[in-house]
C-alpha cells in the first residue's frame, strides 16, 4: 500500500479550498443545466482520467459512495488505485449498484437501463453519471427546457450519445426517478439533471446523418 501510494500522483493540494471551488462549479452546473461552468482543477490524475473528472470525483465521493468506472478506466490500474487512495470509494462491478458512475468518454457510458434511477419514495438514491467529453464539435441539435433554464437553450449534445439521449427521453415519465449527468470538458463542467427536457430541433448532423 505504501509503495503504491508513493507512486500515485497527489490529490488536491489544498483539499478544503480546491474541493469547495470544484463543488461550486458543479453546483452551478446542476442548477443551470446545459451551461458550461468554468472548472480549473490543479490536479494531475493518471491518464486517461482527466483533471476535471478526477476533481469532481474527489469532491463528491468517499467511503460512503459506491463508484463504478468503465472497463477502459478499469484497465488502467493507476486510475483505480488513484481513485481508491484519494477517495476510499468502494469500486463496484455493476453500474446499478453505484451512486456514481465514471465514464472516460460518451461511448463508454453504460446503457441507461443499467443505471439506478432511485425509487418514487427515494429518488435521490440514484446514479450520478460523470462523463469525460474532451473532443469538440457539435453532434446533435437539441433544445433544452426545464428548471434552471430561463426559457430554452440550444445544446449540441456534446458529451452524450444519441442512444443515451433517446433512452433517457423514454424514461422521462418516471420522474421523480431519474439519472443526473455531469459532463466534464476541457476546463468546464456541464450539468444535465433529470428534469432537463431535450428535444431535437433539426435534422441530425452527426457523422452518418449528412451522407
Amino acid at each position: 500500500m505504501n509503495q503504491a501510494a508513493a507512486t500515485l500522483t497527489p490529490g488536491f493540494a489544498q483539499p478544503v479550498q480546491d474541493a469547495q471551488r470544484v463543488f461550486r462549479a458543479v453546483l452551478e452546473a446542476m442548477a443551470r443545466p446545459l451551461q458550461p461552468q468554468a472548472l480549473a482543477v490543479p490536479l494531475t490524475p493518471p491518464a486517461p482520467l482527466t483533471a476535471e473528472a478526477g476533481g469532481v470525483v474527489l469532491t463528491l465521493c468517499d467511503e460512503q459512495t459506491p463508484l463504478w468506472v468503465d472497463p477502459q478506466l478499469h484497465r488502467h490500474h493507476e486510475v483505480t488505485a488513484w481513485l481508491g487512495f484519494h477517495t476510499g470509494a468502494p469500486l463496484v462491478a455493476a453500474a446499478a449498484e453505484a451512486l456514481f458512475c465514471l465514464a472516460s468518454s460518451p461511448d463508454a457510458v453504460p446503457p441507461f437501463e443499467d443505471l439506478s434511477p432511485g425509487t418514487d419514495q427515494e429518488p435521490h438514491r440514484s446514479t450520478t453519471l460523470i462523463v469525460q467529453a474532451e473532443q469538440t464539435g457539435s453532434r446533435q441539435r437539441l433544445r433544452g427546457t426545464g428548471p434552471g433554464i430561463r426559457e430554452a437553450l440550444d445544446w449540441d449534445g456534446h458529451g452524450m450519445t444519441e442512444q443515451f439521449r433517446t433512452a433517457r427521453a423514454e424514461h422521462a415519465g418516471g420522474f421523480p426517478r431519474g439519472v443526473d449527468v455531469l459532463i466534464t470538458g476541457r476546463g468546464t463542467v456541464t450539468g444535465l439533471p433529470r428534469t432537463t427536457v431535450l428535444e431535437p430541433t433539426g435534422p441530425d448532423t452527426a457523422a452518418e446523418g449528412g451522407a
Partner: peptide, 22 residues
C-alpha cells in the same frame, strides 16, 4: 470534509429533484 461531502451530495440531488426533501 466528510460532512461537507454529505451535504454537497444532498444539495445536488435536491437541485435535480426540485422541492423533494433529501
Amino acid at each position: 470534509e466528510q460532512t461537507k461531502r454529505v451535504v454537497r451530495r444532498a444539495l445536488l440531488k435536491g437541485i435535480a429533484i426540485p422541492g423533494f426533501q433529501v
